[in-house]
Design a protein around this nucleic acid. Structure first.
Lengths: 216, 216
DNA sequence: TTGTCGGCTGTATAAAAACACAGTCTTTTC
DNA sequence: GAAAAGACTGTGTTTTTATACAGCCGACAA
């Protein structure tokens, strides 16, 4: 990584700011903290830190600075040698027409033990709504998804119909696909493959839930 | 503190946002996450949370939301800065009288991103049986557990009664504790603390499921 | 019945913040 | 000895973001 002393100071300030005030600093805050006279000084430092992998910058986002684990004190030895995969991406809102793993829609990366899921997932997707309740898939859960365009009957898939991404149980009979919810309150979706387009984005291979045990 | 369910959802979202993206959300981000049509909805919720002491708002500051420790589950707060252990142990068969984390009963270690669960869990436990079905906890799931001897009403706990380890929703009224299943087929367990011994091993803070989406 | 609270919609607007462009002056590094 | 990196100054412009104002509706308490 190899930061210059000045860059280390800036990074240190960001980490302290985060701990003390609960959010990363803005360019302006860096400017006043260091007595700069131009926002570009802060901007340049941030770019340098991002380039060196100490932080991640989110374009167009206020306080869009993310301190990467590798930069945190206590980070294990220099990762320079080992090609550590940088984790499984959490895919956020998926824009119309955009491929699922477009970088713009990746909200975070999680380092997960690969042996946890079988097969290894390609991305995580946050579940919205109660439609898969009876399959133990609740809103807020992260669904681990293996990318694959093929699905077999009975599998839980991530499908896309036009702009809408949905998680459902897959069932195909000839040219008619039915996407079944695991909740009697939701009607099955019926897609005629000869008329409508259905894209299978992948298959659910696992699930992660953080807390959220508030509801029965 | 006493938040309404909706307020708790908002707070939960803020905490998750903070963990996933490294900064608190803006009003606009809350709006899109919850599907509101007006920024005021988010504003009002933030004001309510601030009034109730769950968060602190910094006027005129973007993402000026600070989650107060008192609001964090387990109030463990510093989870993000803890040294990385060599993984979270998966506790297997628990022998009678043995402490939960006895090395003999540890079956595996999984390396997990610490920002995935709040607070950070101390061990994983394989769920047996369908008694928590309606809470989205299915047999075979790995329950992430934070060790703590205290539980609050409504929380899902890992409890031990004699030799038996069980996962249930906790409810205490005076000296009477009821352990409630999330499945009408299972009767609540009733424990009189003055007569029987009940050990709370910890609180459920998350869940991991590998595949197992075979049942509806 | 008249509040007050919770949970919203809808419209504005001022301030905060990101970030581009154009330079200057060192210090490294090839 | 020239190019590249580092550490800045100075001046905008465009988005984001916070937040005010004016309501609506249902629940619940005095």
């Amino acid at each position: 990584m190899d930061l210059t002393p000045r860059q280390a100071e800036i990074l240190d300030f960001i980490v302290r700011h985060l701990a003390e005030r609960g959010a990363p600093p803005t360019r302006a805050e860096i400017v006043t903290a260091f007595g700069f006279r131009s926002p570009t000084a802060a901007e340049d430092h941030l770019r340098a830190l991002a380039r060196k992998g100490a932080i991640e910058l989110r374009a167009g986002t206020s306080r869009g600075i993310r301190v990467l684990d590798a930069a945190l004190p206590g980070a294990a030895g220099e990762a320079a040698n080992e090609p550590i995969p940088d984790g499984i991406p959490l895919v956020g809102r998926v824009a119309a027409g955009m491929p699922m793993l477009a970088t713009e829609s990746v909200e975070a990366h999680y380092k997960l033990d690969r042996t946890l899921f079988h097969p290894a997932p390609d991305f995580l997707l946050r579940v919205q709504g109660w439609s898969m309740r009876d399959a133990g898939i609740l809103p807020g859960d992260l669904l681990a998804v293996k990318r694959t365009p093929i699905a077999e009957n009975g599998q839980i898939v991530v499908a896309r119909i036009g702009d809408e991404v949905t998680v459902k149980r897959f069932e195909r009979r000839g040219a008619i696909v039915r996407l079944l919810a695991a909740n009697p309150d939701f009607a099955p979706m019926r897609i005629d493959l000869e008329r409508e387009e259905l894209v299978i984005e992948g298959r659910a291979v696992g699930l992660i839930r953080d807390g959220g045990f508030s509801l029965a």
